[in-house]
């Protein structure tokens, strides 16, 4: 019996969300009195995989088949299933990402496992039952869920775990082959197109977000949002009305039918705070609202607020961050 952790890598680096997943998995292993093994997907380097020891991982399985660089659902699922069999994994932990959800759902059927996505806390043992807490109703609530059966798969929501840093611990990296064939790559992408990210920070992975709404009055004013985001090292985002009128691309839309984010800091500029938008951001640790309307509903959900004109306030904030640094 063991815990298997799926770590996603990109350009040789382990993704931040996967450091969280590794930390989650090693803590579950400790609860169960076993060890945590990781299996790497994406473009990984052995040196970086070895540092997963800091997150409590003892061993990392690495298949260096170059076709695994980009996400391929069939191949990733087979690779992880093979690793789970080899390690007799009873618990599989992965990120609640587009990759994690696509692979986790297929794995749950193949391995006859119970599955919980969007999990926000370590599991509890409650009267012999294995219980996880997960986000539900698009950020408006949480639910406690019993996972039944011998095998369980847990997809951990981003930014809900503080990654462990046991300095100096290293994991052993083992070559692993799932004997993948061409048929496993039948659904390989023809082309991968990456977006240009302001400051290179990905919104789903960001721990700070600066977001703009209709109060920004037009796409030509977004430099104010971008300047503050750049100074803070934050990602940029927007409300649904803004992406609906194409001021900003859809992948920046945060809210109930867009991306749900849970950064440490969310700064909302000229966003009134409709209930659908709040659902997408209310698990952020600190929320700052800047709006000229003191009655904007967002202030009720905020930790800090400034009643004022975004065109006046944003440059002052950017200046203050620059002075601080």
């Amino acid at each position: 019996m063991s815990v298997l952790v799926v770590v996603e890598c990109d350009n040789g680096e382990v993704k931040k969300s996967s450091l969280e997943v590794a930390s989650y998995g090693s803590q579950v292993a400790q609860m169960l009195g076993t060890t945590a093994t990781a299996v790497a997907v994406g473009e990984a380097t052995e040196a970086n995989l070895a540092t997963l020891g800091e997150q409590g991982i003892s061993k990392v399985l690495h298949d260096n088949d170059s076709r695994l660089k980009d996400f391929v659902n069939g191949a990733y699922t087979k690779l992880i299933a093979a690793a789970a069999q080899q390690e007799s994994a009873q618990i599989i932990v992965l990120a609640n990402s587009n990759i994690g959800a696509a692979v986790g759902s297929r794995l749950s059927v193949r391995l006859q496992a119970s599955l919980a996505t969007n999990v926000v806390e370590l599991p509890k043992m409650d009267g012999g039952q294995f219980v996880v807490k997960r986000g539900a109703f698009s950020g408006k609530a949480f639910s406690d869920v019993i996972l039944s059966g011998e095998r369980k798969i847990i997809a951990v929501k981003k930014n809900s775990m503080e990654p462990l840093h046991n300095a100096g611990q290293t994991a052993t990296v083992e070559q692993f082959s799932a004997q993948l064939t061409d048929a496993d790559f039948a659904d390989a992408p023809k082309q991968v197109i990456m977006q240009e990210q302001a400051g290179g920070i990905l919104l789903p992975e960001a721990d700070k977000v600066v977001s703009g709404g209709r109060g920004m009055k037009g796409p030509e004013n977004w430099n104010l949002i971008e300047d503050l985001a750049k100074a803070l090292g934050a990602a940029t985002a927007c409300s649904k009305p803004v992406s609906d009128v194409d001021w900003r691309p859809h992948h920046e839309h945060v809210g109930q039918t867009g991306i749900t984010v849970s950064p440490n800091l969310y700064i909302a500029c000229g966003i009134s705070g409709a209930i659908q938008h709040l659902a997408g951001v209310n698990s952020s640790k600190v929320i700052v609202v800047i709006n000229k309307d003191p009655e904007a509903p967002f202030f009720k959900a905020a930790d800090y607020g400034i009643v004022g004109d975004v065109f006046d306030v944003l440059p002052k904030l950017t200046q203050a961050v620059k002075e601080l640094n």
Binding site: S108, A113, K140, A141, D144, V145, G149, N282, G308
Partner: peptide, 24 residues
Amino acid sequence: RTQVTAFALPPKKQGVKLIPAESA
């Protein structure tokens, strides 16, 4: 294979701390 045992609402915010726009 899974069963919800309880729902909960997120904890309420303490209340907003307002900073005057002049000293943003």
